[in-house]
Simulated scan of single mutants.
Amino acid sequence: MSFYEDRILPHIIDRACSMGQVMKLRSHVVPNAKGTVLEVGMGSAINLQFYNPDQVDLVYGLEPSEGMRRKAQPNLSRSPVKVEWLDLPGEKIPLADNSVDTVLLTFTLCTIPDWHAALLQMKRVLKPGGELLFLEHGESHEHSVRTWQHRITPGWKKLAGGCHLNRHIADLIREAGFDIVELENLYVPKTPKIAGYIYKGRAVNPA
């Protein structure tokens, strides 16, 4: 891992992902988590403040970046719920089959290299009927915005830790075998459209 990826990028990502409007969206999604939770791409742990301790028994925080885990320490110290780190990438989830009640994805699928393998791993560990809660940015429904997203992504992902602007999040989730039962699309206010088109919703593991 380069100095940029370990020491600089975590601060950039944390700042970008903790803006006021983004935090408001997180506050709408995270409290729905229940039971044993797997948060994929926990990052700096900025979601922890939104978990409901009366509903959550344990949060497994999957985060392969040492820099992000280091950045998360202040939030971990204030966490209202118990957290256990898993320091492997999303494609390698070290949990048993059918072992979690909720999987949480917030601004994560854009960066996972093999998103399909990662989603299949999430489906494997999620109990039948368990919920996948997601808040992700991705491919816009507007042709003009999509065009720029596809043009910019090759260079953007080199600077933004592998982040893709042009992934159709809902299609990826469906392709992995989840049933989407709730979906809202919107642009984050005061954010460039190429990076601010949001997929917010809930999917169920039908297996």
Results as ranks from 00 to 15, higher is better:
5 E>A: 14
8 I>F: 11
9 L>V: 09
9 L>N: 10
10 P>N: 05
11 H>R: 15
12 I>E: 10
13 I>G: 01
13 I>S: 06
16 A>N: 09
17 C>V: 10
17 C>M: 14
19 M>A: 13
24 K>F: 13
24 K>A: 15
29 V>M: 12
30 V>M: 09
31 P>K: 11
34 K>A: 06
35 G>N: 08
36 T>A: 06
37 V>P: 01
37 V>L: 05
43 G>D: 06
48 L>R: 07
49 Q>L: 14
53 P>L: 06
54 D>Y: 11
59 V>F: 06
62 L>V: 03
67 G>P: 09
70 R>G: 03
71 K>C: 06
72 A>V: 12
73 Q>K: 15
74 P>K: 11
75 N>R: 15
76 L>C: 04
78 R>A: 14
79 S>M: 10
80 P>L: 04
80 P>G: 08
81 V>S: 12
81 V>D: 11
82 K>Q: 14
83 V>P: 01
84 E>P: 00
87 D>L: 01
90 G>Y: 02
92 K>P: 00
94 P>V: 07
97 D>N: 14
102 T>V: 04
107 F>D: 01
107 F>Y: 11
111 T>A: 15
112 I>V: 15
113 P>K: 12
113 P>F: 10
114 D>L: 09
115 W>H: 12
116 H>C: 07
116 H>A: 15
117 A>D: 05
122 M>S: 07
123 K>N: 04
126 L>G: 01
127 K>G: 02
130 G>N: 04
131 E>W: 00
140 S>V: 12
142 E>Y: 13
145 V>Y: 08
146 R>H: 05
152 I>L: 15
158 K>N: 10
159 L>F: 14
162 G>L: 14
174 R>A: 01
175 E>A: 13
177 G>V: 02
181 V>I: 15
188 V>W: 01
192 P>W: 13
193 K>E: 13
197 Y>N: 03
200 K>S: 11
200 K>Y: 11
202 R>A: 02
202 R>L: 11
203 A>I: 08
205 N>T: 11
206 P>S: 15
